[in-house]
Amino acid sequence: VTLFVALYDYEAITEDDLSFHKGEKFQILNSSEGDWWEARSLTTGETGYIPSNYVAPVD
């Protein structure tokens, strides 16, 4: 499982989006939707859509 880490803070715009803070880690559930990925936060356990350009793979 490839994990991703937030590079910036993000505040949800719609109820389907997931708010997060810089440094938060995610498991990507679906990355086939283009620039918005469905993800689960490993910090909160919540799922929602995140902007793919706000995250990077964890080394």
Results as ranks from 00 to 15, higher is better:
A6V: 01
V5D: 01
Y8C: 11
T43V: 10
T47M: 09
Y49E: 03
P57L: 08
F4C: 07
F4S: 03
L18K: 02
T2Q: 13
L42Y: 07
E46R: 15
A12V: 02
D59Q: 13
L3D: 05
E33Q: 14
F26M: 06
I28M: 04
K25C: 10
G48W: 02
Y8F: 11
T2M: 13
N53E: 09
E33L: 14
T47E: 09
L42G: 02
Y49G: 04
S52T: 07
I28F: 03
W36A: 06
Y8P: 00
V1A: 13
H21S: 12
S31R: 12
G23V: 01
R40W: 07
Q27H: 11
N53I: 10
W37S: 02
I28V: 10
Q27F: 14
V1C: 15
V58Y: 14
A39G: 05
V58G: 05
S19Q: 04
G34I: 11
E24T: 08
A39Y: 02
V1P: 13
D35K: 10
Q27C: 11
G23S: 04
A6L: 01
I50L: 07
D9E: 06
V55W: 01
A39E: 00
E24M: 06
S32K: 11
L42M: 12
L7F: 03
D9C: 09
S41A: 07
D35N: 10
T2I: 12
A6C: 02
S41I: 06
E46L: 14
A12N: 06
L18V: 05
E11D: 11
D16C: 14
V55L: 11
T43Y: 10
S32W: 10
S31W: 13
E11H: 11
D9Y: 04
E15D: 14
A6W: 01
E24H: 07
T14H: 15
E15M: 11
K22Q: 09
L42S: 04
D17I: 13
E33D: 15
V55I: 10
N53L: 09
D16A: 14
A6Y: 01
L42P: 02
W36L: 09
S41V: 05
D16K: 15
A56E: 10
F26H: 00
T2D: 10
L18R: 02
H21L: 11
T14D: 12
V5H: 05
F4W: 15
E15Q: 12
Q27P: 00
A39V: 12
I50Q: 00
Y10T: 01
Y49K: 14
S32G: 11
A39H: 00
G45H: 07
A12T: 04
S19W: 03
I13Y: 08
F4G: 04
G23Y: 05
I50E: 00
S19G: 07
S32Y: 10
Q27W: 14
N30T: 08
I50N: 00
E33H: 15
E11A: 10
T2L: 12
E46G: 08
E38M: 15
T14I: 06
A6F: 01
V55H: 01
D16S: 14
P57A: 09
P57I: 09
G48S: 01
Q27S: 08
W37M: 06
T2H: 12
W36E: 03
V58P: 04
D35I: 12
T14L: 11
T47I: 13
R40G: 01
D35Q: 12
E33G: 14
D17Y: 15
R40K: 12
L7E: 04
I13F: 09
Q27A: 09
Y54V: 04
G34F: 10
V1I: 13
E38V: 15
E15T: 11
L29V: 08
S52M: 10
L7S: 03
E46C: 12
V5R: 05
Y8N: 06
H21M: 12
L29M: 08
F26K: 00
V58K: 04
S52D: 02
F26E: 00
F20L: 05
S19E: 04
Y8L: 08
D35W: 12
N30C: 09
S31A: 13
P51K: 07
L7G: 02
N53Y: 10
G23L: 03
W37G: 00
F4E: 01
I13E: 13
S32N: 11
N30L: 06
A56I: 13
A56H: 08
E11G: 06
E38W: 15
K22N: 04
F4A: 09
V55F: 09
E46D: 09
I13D: 09
T43D: 10
S31H: 11
V1G: 13
E46Q: 15
R40H: 07
K22C: 07
V55Y: 01
E33N: 15
S32F: 10
G48Y: 02
G45V: 02
W36M: 12
P57M: 09
T14K: 14
K22L: 06
T47G: 04
L18N: 01
A12L: 01
D35L: 15
W37I: 06
D9H: 06
T43G: 06
T43K: 14
D59H: 13
W36S: 06
T47W: 09
V5N: 02
A56Y: 08
I50D: 00
L3P: 05
L29N: 05
V58H: 08
E33S: 14
G48A: 03
W36V: 08
N30S: 11
S52A: 13
I28G: 01
R40S: 05
W37H: 03
P51A: 04
G45A: 05
F20T: 03
I28P: 03
W37D: 01
K25V: 15
N53G: 10
F4I: 03
L7M: 08
W36I: 08
Y10M: 04
S32R: 10
Q27M: 14
F26W: 01
E24V: 04
L3R: 05
I13S: 12
S41C: 07
T14Y: 15
V55T: 04
R40L: 13
D35M: 14
E15F: 10
K25S: 06
L18Y: 04
E15R: 10
A56T: 10
I50V: 09
D17H: 15
D9W: 04
I50M: 02
L18W: 04
F26R: 00
Q27V: 15
E33P: 11
S19R: 04
E46H: 12
L18P: 02
S52L: 05
D59K: 10
A39P: 00
D9Q: 05
E46P: 01
A56M: 11
R40E: 05
